[in-house]
Amino acid sequence: MRILPLIALFVARSANAALFDRPIPQPQSATAEFWFILASIMLFAALYAVYRMVNRK
């Protein structure tokens, strides 16, 4: 039982975290921008379609 505090101390010392390096964001590629604009246009079209269906009399 006397060795348990020594083991706990060893584990606590080895668990120290390294300094955090912030990730550097990568620029968007042309492909990513194309898919984003396509998704934005499709979302707008879907919202407009829902608007037209709801306002039908």
Results as ranks from 00 to 15, higher is better:
residue 54 V to Y: 14
residue 35 W to T: 01
residue 20 F to D: 13
residue 36 F to H: 00
residue 8 A to Q: 14
residue 27 P to V: 04
residue 2 R to C: 03
residue 37 I to A: 05
residue 53 M to V: 15
residue 41 I to Q: 11
residue 37 I to D: 05
residue 23 P to N: 03
residue 41 I to L: 14
residue 37 I to S: 08
residue 51 Y to I: 11
residue 48 Y to S: 10
residue 15 A to W: 14
residue 38 L to A: 04
residue 4 L to H: 09
residue 14 S to D: 05
residue 11 V to W: 04
residue 33 E to K: 05
residue 2 R to W: 02
residue 23 P to I: 00
residue 4 L to Y: 12
residue 18 A to T: 15
residue 39 A to I: 11
residue 52 R to W: 15
residue 52 R to M: 10
residue 26 Q to N: 03
residue 45 A to V: 15
residue 2 R to H: 00
residue 41 I to P: 02
residue 27 P to H: 15
residue 19 L to D: 09
residue 33 E to A: 02
residue 32 A to M: 02
residue 14 S to E: 02
residue 48 Y to C: 03
residue 42 M to T: 01
residue 13 R to H: 05
residue 5 P to G: 01
residue 45 A to P: 02
residue 15 A to L: 09
residue 41 I to K: 06
residue 53 M to W: 12
residue 26 Q to C: 01
residue 48 Y to Q: 09
residue 7 I to L: 09
residue 44 F to D: 00
residue 56 R to Y: 14
residue 33 E to S: 03
residue 2 R to P: 06
residue 15 A to M: 12
residue 52 R to H: 14
residue 13 R to L: 07
residue 37 I to H: 11
residue 42 M to I: 00
residue 3 I to C: 07
residue 40 S to C: 12
residue 27 P to R: 12
residue 19 L to K: 04
residue 51 Y to K: 09
residue 53 M to K: 15
residue 56 R to A: 08
residue 40 S to I: 02
residue 51 Y to A: 06
residue 17 A to F: 05
residue 48 Y to K: 04
residue 40 S to E: 05
residue 43 L to H: 01
residue 35 W to R: 05
residue 50 V to H: 04
residue 40 S to N: 11
residue 12 A to Q: 10
residue 36 F to N: 06
residue 34 F to Y: 10
residue 29 S to L: 06
residue 21 D to N: 12
residue 11 V to D: 02
residue 57 K to P: 06
residue 1 M to F: 04
residue 9 L to W: 14
residue 23 P to W: 13
residue 6 L to E: 14
residue 53 M to D: 15
residue 39 A to H: 07
residue 50 V to R: 03
residue 28 Q to M: 02
residue 23 P to Y: 13
residue 26 Q to K: 11
residue 54 V to W: 11
residue 52 R to E: 10
residue 13 R to W: 05
residue 4 L to E: 09
residue 40 S to F: 03
residue 34 F to P: 00
residue 8 A to S: 10
residue 6 L to S: 14
